[in-house]
């Protein structure tokens, strides 16, 4: 189902885009992918709630997972609004206190958790993250959501799906499927957090 979302696009990154050479997605590609995901969100919301005045979008909440899921959720909401004319609620759920790898990776500073006024009860929640890999972040986010309310349904949108799931989790909206090996690193850079939009695949544990 996830693969049906991505059109066949094998062209190399456009020259002249402000991205590193060899970037998997340039900044123009990222913008296009976000636009496409916004259209899919609109379609899916309409299908889930036929007959509602604004195509089911009033019950939609885009909930970003920090760090980069949060700006992605805001961008998706802005594009959905641009295409449909309906404002969409945005939230952030910090999953640090729900992680199962704190012992392996050590504690880290917490990020804020922000929910729309009125909470998420009976809403259509779409979790937004940059990269889907093991699925453990999503599991932690689902646990966090359970403590925050009872959504009508929860879906998942990711910019990049790189495979290697360790849990039975799949995304409902995928920007780009990227076959990778476990030794590779997929890094999403966004203007809000890193100065420019691009997606990079690098070999080994650089940084």
């Amino acid at each position: 189902m996830a693969s049906s979302v991505e059109p066949a696009r094998n062209e190399p990154p456009k020259s002249g885009a402000p991205s590193s050479p060899g970037a998997l997605l340039s900044s123009a590609d990222v913008a296009r992918v976000v636009d496409r995901m916004a259209h899919q969100l609109i379609e899916r919301a309409a299908a889930s709630d036929p007959g509602s005045p604004n195509g089911g979008l009033s019950s939609l909440v885009l909930v970003g997972i920090p760090t980069r899921g949060a700006p992605l959720a805001r961008r998706l909401a802005a594009r959905v609004e641009a295409f449909s004319g309906t404002t969409v609620d945005v939230g952030i759920v910090d999953i640090t206190l729900y992680r199962d790898d704190l012992r392996l990776r050590g504690v880290r500073a917490l990020e804020p958790t922000v929910l729309p006024d009125g909470g998420i009860d009976d809403r259509l929640v779409v979790l937004v993250d940059d990269v889907l890999y093991s699925g453990r972040s999503v599991r932690a986010a689902l646990d966090a959501l359970r403590d925050l309310g009872r959504p009508r349904s929860v879906q998942l949108a990711v910019l990049v799906d790189r495979g290697h799931r360790e849990l039975p989790i799949r995304a409902d909206f995928v920007g780009k499927n990227v076959p990778t090996s476990r030794s590779q690193q997929v890094r999403v850079h966004l203007a809000e957090t890193d100065g420019a939009d691009e997606v990079l695949v690098t070999e080994g544990d650089i940084t």
Binding site: L97, Y98, L110, P112, T113, D147, L148, G149
Partner: peptide, 17 residues
């Protein structure tokens, strides 16, 4: 402060950490 804010107004004031 983040913990305060995350737990404010929640029904389940418990974290699994």
């Amino acid at each position: 402060a983040q913990i305060d804010q995350a737990l404010a107004g929640r029904e389940v004031k418990k974290l699994p950490t």
